[in-house]
Design a protein around this nucleic acid. Structure first.
Lengths: 230, 230
DNA sequence: TGCACGTTACAGTCCGGTAAGTAAGTTTGA
DNA sequence: TCAAACTTACTTACCGGACTGTAACGTGCA
């Protein structure tokens, strides 16, 4: 756990070898989760023993963290070739990502499984996902501010909720889509929901739900229904 | 795995004993997930050995399925004392549930963790959650139809996407809220998002996102950005 | 008396991590 | 330049722990 030889990487091909391992780890963590994804399965994908993996990463725990960091770095590297989206471009970017994700079930599954698993006790990826969501929410909030400024309206205080909701709906749709890809169109549904939320921020309207929901608190009555936690 | 003595339950107190076990199992599966939640931990919560648990449920696998069934039955039993919500009442019910869930982190976590874990290979709860989402989506679609009929408008074909989105946003917000309860207000954010989606179904409006998103497909360009999968 | 409800004990797996050894590669210095 | 000295990248072998499931046995209610 502690004495992990880190960053030797003297030989040039080692770096590519490590990347192979990281991609393999992403695959099995995605398919089985972190807890149930054994090192041996990762190892045999790259024709190695599990001890070889541990030689490179020190521990399974450390491997997971590097897997997550690796993906973010790859994405950021690709992004750097473009401009950094802000304002309405960020929302378009999110919609486009949702459409693209429909062809990347493996990666989608890895993030869906690992992010939910991370809320369990002492999970090694917990702080990673905490920070990830914090960062993403901040970016979306900023995009709302820019968008409102362009429209010449003051950004309402609902932007925080809206930002969380946009990320939430994308994640939640992924789970439903992974369970039954024929039942949910990941791209179209994400686009619809994002439009709905953006519209509500820019031009709030009362609805038959909201009419009474405004004063809704942890009411004294009320059971839970089949959708207890959804 | 196969020959599990089921439903003997000769003595009256046995039924309550089983319920104790189910509640304890819900707690540890929620805290650690199914794969990492050991039977011994469930057992010691009810002052038993893990072999005692297996005597009642035959296998850990079977225990999980009964846990999930038990919760739904409890919820439905409570619901039966009320009316079955439909039309706009279902949406109000969902919002109310979100507020209530803010005080039930344990149950929320169990569903969040298990539903995401269920998408992994050969997970015992997979078909449970497939069916659960299918049922819930159908109910929400029906509520949209009733609501549209009340308003005298024709239900648009977006109701399917909207139904999936409403469930998705509730689930996704739960994950963010579990990771950092101070960053997200589960009830308020759920209410906001549900209102937004209902409003968009009843009265669709173009947005700066949708203006171009309509023709958005798996475009040839486009990387993924930090929010690769969200 | 017999069955339900446990217990203890154990079998069998699986898995992460460590130790020790080996065959390459890289560095260094005369 | 080239070989000794050292490092890296593994392998095999093994340890120890955790966990599910089974078998055998006791105990008390009906």
């Amino acid at each position: 756990m502690s004495s992990t030889r880190r960053e030797p990487r003297s030989r040039p091909e080692t770096l590519e070898r490590r990347r192979e391992i990281l991609r393999a780890a992403m695959a099995t963590f995605g398919a089985k989760g972190y807890n149930k994804g054994p090192l041996t399965e990762i190892a045999e994908q790259v024709n190695m023993t599990h001890a070889g993996i541990l030689h490179h990463f020190g521990s399974k725990n450390q491997l997971l963290l590097e897997v997550l960091r690796y993906r973010d770095e790859s994405d950021v590297a690709e992004l750097a070739e473009q401009h950094i989206p802000d304002g309405v471009d960020l929302f378009r970017h999110l919609v486009r990502t949702a459409f693209l994700n429909a062809d990347r079930a493996g990666i989608v599954q890895a993030y869906a499984v690992l992010s939910a698993e991370s809320v369990t006790d002492d999970h090694p990826a917990r702080s990673f996902f905490e920070e990830r969501y914090r960062t993403l929410r901040t970016e979306v909030v900023e995009a709302f501010r820019v968008l409102c400024a362009e429209r010449g309206v003051e950004a309402p205080e609902t932007v925080e909720r809206a930002a969380a909701s946009i990320l939430a709906v994308m994640d939640g749709l992924q789970v439903q889509w992974l369970l039954d890809p024929t039942a949910v169109d990941l791209g179209e549904a994400s686009a619809f929901a994002i439009e709905a939320i953006v519209a509500q921020v820019l031009d709030p309207r009362a609805t038959p739900v909201g009419d009474t929901a405004a004063d809704e608190g942890p009411g004294a009555d009320a059971p839970t229904g089949q959708g207890a936690t959804t």
